[in-house]
Simulated scan of single mutants.
Amino acid sequence: MNAIFLLILAILDLYKLVLIITIVMSWLFTFGVINRYNQVVDAVWNVCTALTEPVLRPIRNILPSMGGLDLSPLVVFFAILFLQNFIRYDLMPALT
């Protein structure tokens, strides 16, 4: 049973990494450091947005507009941290 929880925790860690990559790439696009004409950059961007947009879009619809500031990745990041701590400190000890 612990192996399943550890797998879930690892997947959540990977999703946090993809979320951070998406945030940093969007900043780099905004400031003109990288562009999407590069095939590698475009491929990484497409994979990251395909993984994060289904989760971020409903949160963007709920959160009020902050004048160009997108807080949905922050909400998802904190939700993942909460879920990981719940699994690690509450669920795993209760089931072992």
Rank of each mutant, 00 (worst) to 15 (best):
T22M: 07
T30A: 14
T49M: 11
N35H: 10
T96Q: 04
F86G: 03
Y89I: 01
T49I: 13
P64D: 07
D70K: 00
L81T: 15
L63G: 09
I59E: 05
F31Q: 07
L28S: 08
T96N: 01
I8M: 14
V41P: 11
S26C: 05
V24E: 01
A79T: 12
L74C: 09
P64N: 05
L6Q: 15
S65C: 12
Q84R: 07
L81A: 15
V41F: 15
N35V: 02
I11Q: 09
L28K: 10
G67Q: 04
V47P: 04
W27K: 12
L81M: 15
I62S: 03
M1Q: 08
L51G: 12
D90H: 13
L19N: 00
I8S: 05
L91G: 04
N85S: 12
T52Q: 02
I20A: 04
N35E: 05
Y15S: 04
T52V: 03
T49P: 01
L74G: 05
P73I: 13
L81W: 15
N35F: 13
K16S: 04
N2C: 10
L7A: 11
S65V: 14
N46G: 00
S26V: 05
I80W: 02
I8N: 02
M1P: 03
P58F: 09
T30R: 14
G68M: 06
L74Q: 05
A50M: 05
L95E: 01
